[in-house]
Design a binder for these strands. Structure first.
Lengths: 86, 86
DNA sequence: CTCATACTACATACTATAGTTAGCATATTA
DNA sequence: TAATATGCTAACTATAGTATGTAGTATGAG
């Protein structure tokens, strides 16, 4: 599993959730996913599927496009940090 | 499984692949995924994971952001067709 | 402060299903 | 018609999805 990718994805989800000021449990309700599963995703412990990305985006009331826009930006930032340390 | 979502995703992948003028097999090589798996994804038979979305995007040399931008647009089109038939 | 409440982390464990491959059928095209 | 590309079935194995329970942490009211 690509842990780095999942972790970055988790960070994005946390960011959006905090923005909406809701708990993992509340996000679970809204996206029809279990409370602990949300936690796992946020900690980057699971390689989420397309269907659940869609559910999360609906629960967070943001488009998948926006999620991946942020994710791509985050990945680029990480890449640059990595390259600087070569 | 959300078949509609997977099918729409598959259509996007086909679109990008044809744009690059490569076969499923070639895309398989480039993204490090099996030929038949690419076929399944394009036919919307599998609920793909984030990791493999990432692999595909690299094999197709496009950003995930762009994939989901197109996917969101396609979903909106499908929604409108659905609403018109109410 | 301190107690209660809400929130999150984490460790299992189970069951669904994604990921992977082989093989053969069926187009498609040169 | 030979070569190339795709569809599809079937099987296996890896792991995502789901849930319970417990422990720890943060926060706010009294």
């Amino acid at each position: 599993m690509n842990a780095e990718l999942s972790k970055n994805f988790g960070k994005i989800i946390i960011e959006f959730r905090k923005e909406k000021k809701i708990s993992q449990e509340e996000l679970g309700f809204r996206s029809n996913l279990h409370r602990t599963y949300i936690g796992m995703i946020e900690r980057g412990e699971k390689n989420i599927t397309l269907e659940n990305i869609d559910k999360l985006s609906k629960g967070l009331d943001v488009s998948m496009k926006l999620i991946f826009e942020k994710l791509n930006k985050l990945i680029i930032i990480w890449k640059n940090i990595f390259l600087k340390n070569l």
